[in-house]
Amino acid sequence: MHEITLLSGKGGTGKTTIAAALASVARDAVFCDADVDAADLHLILKPDILEEHRLESNWVAIIDDELCTHCSLCVEYCRFDAIHYKPSGGLEINPFDCEGCRLCERICPEQAIRSERNNNNFWYVSNSRFGTLVHAKMGAGEQNSGKLVTEVRKKTREIAQNTGAKFIITDGPPGIGCPVISALTGTHKVLMVIEPTKSGLHDAGRLIELAGNFNIDIFAVINKYDINDQVTGEIEKYLHENSIPLLVKIPFDTVMVEAMLQAKTIVEYQPYSNISKMIHQIWESIAETEYTEVEKVK
C-alpha cells in the first residue's frame, strides 16, 4: 500500500482540485483529507458520513472564582501569557492561549484551578462515489491540528489495509509547520502542486527542503502555468536541479472553477479535455511506479 500526499507550501495552488480529480481516475484507492483546519475535499466528493468520531483534545485550565485568592502565582508560572486580571477584578484564563500544560493547576496553593478537555475536534469515515474518504472538522481555533492529521491518516491506513486498497491519496495542508510535518511522517510520495509565482516557488522550496529531511520521493506539477511563463521557467529549472520529475504543466482555465461550482471534478465535468488527459497522465505516472514496485516486492 502506498500513500501519495499532495502538498504545496503556499496555499491556494490547487491541491484539493487536483486531489479530487485524481480521486475520479484512481483505482484501488482510499482518500484522506489531511487539511483539517480548512478541509474542502468533501465539497467535491460529497461523502455520506458513515462514522463520526471525537478526538480527545488538549486540556484547558479554568479558575474557580470562589476559591481563588488572587495570589497570581499562576500568572507568574504560565509561560503562555494565558492568565490575566479581569476588568471586574479576579483572574481568568484565555482558553485560546492556554496550552494545556496543567502547571497552573499543580502549583495553585488553593487548588482553585481545574482542567477540562476541549472536545471540538471531529473526524469521519465516509462513503463517496469514488470510494472511502476519511476527513475531519476541527473546532475553531484549536491547537491540535497535527494530532488530528495523524489520526485521520492512521484511520485511512487501517481502512486501506483491511480493504486491500493499493493507494491512499491524501490532500495535505499548506505551510511547513506542525500539520505538514504530521502529514509527511511515513508517507511514500509527495505530489507538489506549484503555481508559477515568486511566492509559490519560494514556498515550494521550503517544503522540498523539509521533505528532504524525511527522504520521501517527490513529484511535481505546475498548475496555472501560463499565468507567468517566466516564473514557470524558473520553477522548471529549480525542479530539474533538484532532480524532481515534473509530470505535467496544467494551464489556467476558468473551467476548473465551473467544475467546482457543480461539485464535480474536472474529469467528470469535461472528461475529454486536455486537462483531464493530464490528470490521467499524473495518475499513470504515480501508479505505474507504484505497481512496478509492488511487482518487484512480489
Binding site: 496555499g11 480548512a38 481555533g141 484549536e142 491540528s145 505551510g175
Partner: peptide, 14 residues
Amino acid sequence: SPPGTSCPVVTTTA
C-alpha cells in the same frame, strides 16, 4: 496572517 483556522491564526488576530 497564515491560512487556516487553528492556533497560528488565533495568535495572529488575538
